[in-house]
Simulated scan of single mutants.
Amino acid sequence: MMDAMNPGKENIPLKINPELGRSIFGTNAQAYHQARPGYPARVFEILQTTCGADVDVFEIGPGTGQATEPLLDYGCRVTAIEPDERLAAFLDVRLKKHAARLTIDRHPFEDIELPAGSFELGIAAMSLHWLSPEIALAKAFRLLRSGGKWAMWWTVFGDPDDMDDFQRQTQSLFKKIGAQSFTPVAGWTPFALERDKRLAELEKASFTETVYEKVRWSPVLSTRQVLELTATFSPVARLPEIERVCFLDDIARIAEREFNGSVRRNFVTAIYTAHKP
């Protein structure tokens, strides 16, 4: 999901600098891994149906391996392209048991040199928005074999079409820090849910058989889980420490006072799949 900032101009989401986006999540890899929920099972059902198991996969921006590990468990051979050395090191240790089928490339995707037509599947989970989609998708297309598949997806932590009570009650807090992604406004759609734009980008890169699906899911989170997840959102993580602590204290008070420490959230995961002829 694209986090967005809005310093002083109403309803105009401003993207966070991509360089910051590529570095902020590795500050505490263990905390990030514990806080971020995995992806709904439907995502992996789609991957297995379209691509099968035991295939060669490249992954753009694996982070701590929430998509990487299930693919390895399915028997895939994965080249994980992670430019943040801290995240790459964490991934290396955490998935050591899969070392024979996991290669970690520590270069930015734009700079890697891999043979064209080497992979049957390419994926980007919660990462493509930190790159130029046009450049990244063209390169992804080249890396795939003829007949190869591509999948990209994002989870939006607050369904704009079905706002939950917690999101309503915390909107004003997120608005104060310019977190537009969590304070939906008329006329603006999160990056992940801009269906026509994302499909057009895939088609421009010469992909065919493009498919879009929204997966809605509603986890129940404890106050601790709410705080840990919220702390990983880039508009929150980039706050000065005192402001961040105060912000999270306010979030905790709402979770405890209004929801008794049991918060049902409405999330939506948008997944796009495509085919290389």
Rank of each mutant, 00 (worst) to 15 (best):
D3Q: 12
M5N: 09
N6D: 15
P7K: 10
G8A: 05
E10Y: 12
N11P: 00
I12P: 00
P13A: 01
P13M: 00
P13E: 02
I16E: 06
N17F: 05
P18T: 07
E19V: 11
E19N: 11
L20P: 00
S23D: 06
A29I: 07
A29H: 09
A35T: 08
P37T: 04
G38F: 09
A41G: 15
V43E: 10
F44N: 03
E45W: 04
I46D: 08
Q48P: 02
T49G: 09
C51E: 02
D54L: 08
V55I: 14
V57Q: 03
V57R: 00
I60L: 14
G61W: 06
P62N: 06
G63S: 08
T64F: 02
Q66D: 10
Q66M: 11
L72F: 01
I81G: 00
P83A: 05
A89L: 11
A89Q: 12
A89N: 12
D92L: 07
V93G: 08
R94F: 09
K96Q: 14
H98Y: 15
L102E: 08
D105W: 12
P108F: 11
P115K: 09
S118I: 02
L121F: 12
M126D: 15
L128I: 13
H129E: 03
L131C: 12
E134N: 10
I135M: 10
A136Q: 00
L137V: 04
L143V: 03
L143Y: 09
R145K: 15
S146H: 11
G147S: 04
G147H: 03
K149I: 03
K149S: 11
K149Q: 13
W150P: 01
W154S: 11
V156E: 14
P160C: 00
P160N: 00
M163Q: 13
D164W: 07
D165C: 02
Q167W: 10
Q167V: 00
Q167K: 04
R168F: 14
Q171P: 03
S172R: 15
K176L: 13
K176I: 10
A179T: 03
A179P: 02
Q180E: 14
T183M: 14
P184C: 14
V185Q: 11
A186G: 14
G187D: 08
W188G: 01
W188D: 14
P190F: 06
F191R: 02
E194I: 00
E194N: 13
R198F: 01
L199F: 03
L199K: 04
A200V: 05
E201Q: 12
K204M: 01
T208K: 10
K214A: 15
P219D: 05
V220W: 01
L221E: 10
R224Y: 12
Q225P: 02
L227F: 10
A231I: 05
P235V: 05
V236Y: 06
R238T: 14
L239G: 07
P240A: 08
I242V: 15
E243N: 14
F247Q: 07
D249P: 02
D250K: 14
I251P: 00
A252G: 05
A255V: 02
F259E: 08
G261F: 04
G261P: 03
N266P: 00
F267S: 09
I271V: 15
I271Q: 05
Y272S: 06
T273P: 04
P277L: 06
